[in-house]
Design a protein around this nucleic acid. Structure first.
Lengths: 217, 217, 217, 217
DNA sequence: TATGAATGAGGGTTCATTCAT
DNA sequence: CATGAATGAACCCTCATTCAT
């Protein structure tokens, strides 16, 4: 109860920790500033002094956790590897992150996606960054595999275009997201195992796809 | 002010329509009963008289929309077809539903997943029903493809077990979910096209997978 | 559900019955017109058509039950008896009434006394009528016992004046009231027994009092 | 608008003061939290922050006022006195309390008795404590007067039993209650005068009664 | 005679946010 | 650096009451 003097930088981290915990537990709207303040043993005025407002606080959470996640993914997906391995390692890092930072992931993916208006922007940006990394990876894969420039899929030609890379990235991140949720609900398993599960479904199909193969040929 | 007499059964549908619209726009918590009442030109007491409470109203929305979606999917995924076609038609129906009932889908998938506690159950149930249909489909596919009984993947054997069918269903619905979101953000395209996109990624890989092939050998 | 045509006079009684039941159960404010309408299987508009408003409905209840109670008391307290017997019989009738018409009594005494403003008048009037009967009885007793005219108690003289008769009536009705409540809480006993209990406390003291004896005198 | 800083302990008392005033004026149900908040120049959230809810606020009022009343009574009814004096002094204290704390008494006795369900418990408990004090006093009186053990009144024997002591306590408190109301309605008089009035009716009869005399015996 | 459909108004409760210390 | 005290604004819900049939 007696508030020990704590330097600002540290306090802010404690606040973000508490906020992530509470946001993940109750969702953005249902979470209350009282709850968060209590969780980190600080009075509400401090919260406002340091983080500005509920919305800004939430945005700060999103930013910090997204940065952490992206760092993990980027670090693992060494660009010197070939695309398949890159993706596999990246996904492994992702599942490891989810297991370690359960709350962070819940806020990023489950809670955040939903809200109306004010909050959406932050999360959309964070998510875009993540799937942007995957998109980049896929584009490189296409180039390496196919060689020449890539026309759209609609015109009858086979190889995927830029837009389609984004669609695939959406599919992959969505699938990873869902699988992470499934693992969290079902019981833990090694991050590598989850990554392999996912790769087994998508990559075997994705590789030929990158060469132009399509379902319904 | 208006007070046009409308029979109960009809009014309830109007109310659900309005509620779906508002919930999809603002999310469960941010949506207010006033907003919903205004949206369907009815006073709040009528909402409460017919639908009971905000929570019950939300549950009724979820139920109605989930039933619609499941009906569409089930109707399309004719069990007499072979598994690949079944899934393709089912997904096509799904994407068509999302395009037609944008709000319904948003409530079911985007808004619903997030909330803390009270609402989650309804949505979880609805989602379970959907991915349950896919799981069933995959199990049948495994049987048809593999012939004999199916051991687990952890023990070193190759073919996916029952739990893994659920994981795959999660992956597929998650991927479909994400792709639907991408289509909604990016601009419309034919439902068949989206389904083909998705099948191109997952089915080409899934079929060998059903026979026991795995990534990373 | 199908409303059988019922003549107005009868319906009104049914409504009052239901209202008494509900008012006694929940109190004036907490009772809702819906509850009452449902209790007597009639639609709310009928309630309003016949009884006017919640307040009027309550007043009608009070009036009817108070009249019943007063009739019982008056009938029993035969003025040809001597005062002690008169009171004893009156009280016996009162306790019998309470036992038979539990709800009526609760509304009259427990619920009714409390409310703020609008309702109070009706109840005050009814109660005044009851204790008025007792006051009359006591005045006659004083006359019979004492003979001559009665000065006030403040001037040093002994015999009770008119005001004091009212005070005594208040004491007696209050005591009867409390004892009735006690009996209701504790378990039933014969009305005569209750009356005797009460008389044993008050009358033995009251009789000398009527002659001018006082405590601390 | 005002926002004068007042320490919590004090504010709580102000709130209880205001609440007692308003509850006594309008009754539990009819009283609104807005009214109470306005009465003590505080915003509603403060009320809720400090006292929890309307029900808890009411309970707190009851508790505080009941404690005050009981303290007054107990302090006056010095157990070293003989029973009659004890009761006389206790009643005097009671009537003094009623005159001084009109609202408190109204809440305790008039308003509180009535309500449906939630509130009843608190008041019942408080009232039980009061008449418990009287019961104790009567029991001691019985012992002092009668000497030996006390059988029930139903079996033909004369002296009152334990249950009957409670009945008598109910009678006495009910009578005091009623007389207090009468005094409040009629105009003030000295507390001693009221107590003497009441003793004159009940004690002269009660004393013989304690020895076994009965009406109609 | 009888009712399903409808509402204005208000009550209890909570929340994000800010002073004054 | 830190907080207890305070509030405007909403939100969910319910009620007494009335049309239109």
């Amino acid at each position: 109860m007696k508030a020990k003097r704590v330097p600002r930088a540290l306090r802010e981290q404690q606040m973000l920790d508490a906020a992530v915990k509470v946001f993940s537990r109750s969702g953005y709207h249902a979470a209350s500033m009282d709850e968060i303040a209590e969780e980190c043993d600080v009075s509400k005025p401090m919260l406002y002094l340091y983080l500005g407002s509920k919305e800004e606080l939430f945005a700060a959470c999103i930013r910090r956790e997204a940065d952490r996640l992206i760092a993990r993914f980027a670090e693992a997906a060494d660009p010197s590897l070939e695309p398949g391995d890159q993706l596999f390692r990246g996904l492994t890092a992702f599942f490891a992150f989810v297991a370690e930072h359960r709350d962070s992931w819940i806020v990023l993916y489950q809670q955040a996606r939903a809200q109306g208006e004010p909050v959406v922007a932050e999360v959309a940006a964070a998510r875009a960054e993540v799937s942007g990394a995957v998109t980049t990876l896929l584009r490189r894969a296409v180039r390496e595999v196919g060689g020449d420039d890539v026309p759209g899929p609609r015109a009858g030609e086979a190889r995927p275009d830029r837009g389609e890379a984004a669609a695939m990235a959406a599919i992959i991140t969505g699938a990873a997201d869902a699988l992470a949720g499934w693992v969290l609900d079902t019981g833990p398993e090694a991050a590598e195992e989850s990554a392999r599960r996912l790769m087994s479904v998508i990559w075997i199909g994705l590789e030929p796809r990158l060469r132009g193969a399509r379902y319904g040929g």
